[in-house]
Structure formats: C-alpha cells, structure tokens
C-alpha cells in the first residue's frame, strides 16, 4: 500500500492539471483580499457594515476547483488508457483505488486548509480595526467553520473521484459535481415548505454551517442537524460515491 501511495503521489505532482486546479483554488486568497479592500473602503465611508467573510463567500470556488482535481485523478487515466498501464503494475484494484482516494484526501485537505487560513489571515490583517462584521469574532469562534469548510472541500473532491470512477468520463463527473454543489440546492428551494429546508439541510453546501452550528443561510434559517449529524452526512457523500466508483472499477473490464 505504501508503495502505491508513493506512486500516486508521483502521478499527482507530475501533471500540470494538478497545479492548475490548486492555482484556481488559491485564487480565493486574491479574491478575499480584493473583497476586503472593497468592503473596507465602503466601511471607511459609512463607518461600519456587515459583510460576508471571504473564506465563506468564495468557498464554492475552492470546492469546485479541488473537486475537478478529484475527478481528473481517475478520469484522466480512463481517457488516456493509462488506467490499463496502472492496473498491470497494480492488479489489485482495491489497492489502486484506495491509494488514489488517500492521496486526493491528503492533497485537497492540505490545499484547502492552507488557502482558507491564508484567506482568513490576510483579510483580517487588511480589515484592521474596521467594523466589517466578519472580522469581529475571535479566531477560536471561527475555527469550527474553517475546519468544516476544509472537510467539505475534501469530501467533494472524493465525491468527484468516486463519480469519475463510476462514469469514466470527465465531463459526466463534472456535471454531477456541479449539480450537487449548485443546481440541486437551487431546485430544492422550490419544494413546498417545510420540505425545502428539511432537504436543504442534507445538501453539501448547507452541511458546512450546520457542522459549525451556525445558521444555514439568511434565507434557509437555522439548520436541522446537530453538528455530529451534519458531519456524518458530510462523510456519507464520499463514502457512497467512492463505493459506487470502486464497484465500477472492480466489476468492469479496464
């Protein structure tokens, strides 16, 4: 297993797409700085305001970028035929797939936490003594939200890996990830209450605030799930999709 993990690590660091997706995720830092400068200037005019925290507002960008990384980890192999070369060197498909999942989890968690913390720190430094709303709570209060955000990124990247393995298609897996992240939450809004909020509570984007025991959003209001349950649901997403992906890899001819 260690040998295959180190092989997957070489694979990840030796293709440009890895750095493109990490670069796209890191754009959050720049956007966070721009946002803080902008709302900071507004606050200088008006005295104070309540702005959204950049590491929360731009989270979908990091989630999406690193989900693409998760998808490409497997679909690039299917697209090029590299999967057959890989399976000749590692015929046990469970080992290969677990190693891929492990490397995707480590790489995305490290990237997401670095980007989130960097965005957090730079925006608070730039905000300074101004009253912008998001910069007025202590780091210890914000920590659960940061950790939940980081975990959500990794969960989504693993969902991408699972869907990629199941569909063997980059486009197909990406469309599914976009649906989970952006389309489904929009559609659920149109369900009659209380079902809209009940189901929304189970959706990936709304699990993050519930894990940190905060409001889902101003529109959806308080969450339904206690933090531990929200965390369990967050883990269920990758668990289910990875299982489906694994069976597709295991059962079908390569």
């Amino acid at each position: 297993m260690k040998a295959v993990l180190s092989s997957e690590w070489v694979k990840l660091r030796s293709v440009a797409s890895t750095f493109h997706t990490i670069g796209a995720a890191a754009a959050m830092v720049v956007l966070g700085i721009a946002w803080t400068v902008y709302v900071g200037a507004l606050a200088d005019e008006r005295g104070m305001l309540r702005a959204a925290a950049p590491e929360e507002g731009f989270l979908p960008l990091v989630q999406m970028s690193l989900a693409v990384l998760g998808v490409l980890t497997i679909t690039s192999e299917h697209a090029t035929g590299m999967i057959r070369t890989s399976l000749v060197t590692v015929p046990r498909r469970s080992t290969l797939f677990l190693a891929k999942a492990g490397i995707v989890a480590l790489a995305t968690l490290a990237t997401a936490m670095s980007v989130l913390l960097l965005t957090y720190v730079t925006s608070r430094l730039i905000a300074g003594e101004r009253h912008l709303g998001f910069n007025e709570s202590a780091f210890t209060n914000d920590l659960p939200m940061l950790l939940a955000s980081g975990l959500s990124v990794t969960a989504l990247a693993l969902v991408g890996l699972g869907l990629g393995a199941a569909m063997r298609s980059t486009a197909g897996a990406l469309v599914s990830v976009v649906s989970l992240l952006f389309v489904l939450p929009g559609v659920i809004n149109y369900l009659p209450p209380p079902w809209n909020t009940r189901i929304a509570a189970l959706l990936l984007p709304n699990l993050v605030p519930q894990i940190a025991s905060e409001r889902m959003s101003s529109r959806l209001g308080d969450g339904y799930l206690p933090p531990w349950a929200a965390l369990a649901v967050l883990f269920a997403y990758p668990l289910i999709t990875l299982t489906i992906g694994y069976y597709a890899l295991k059962r079908k001819d390569a």
Binding site: K11, S17, M82
Partner: peptide, 12 residues
C-alpha cells in the same frame, strides 16, 4: 507487458 504504447498520460 507492452499492450498499447499510447496508454500514457501525455502531460507526464
């Protein structure tokens, strides 16, 4: 084994 010489990731 060499099955398909094209079965490589072109970016590597």
């Amino acid at each position: 084994a060499l099955l398909d010489a094209g079965a490589v990731h072109g970016g590597r």
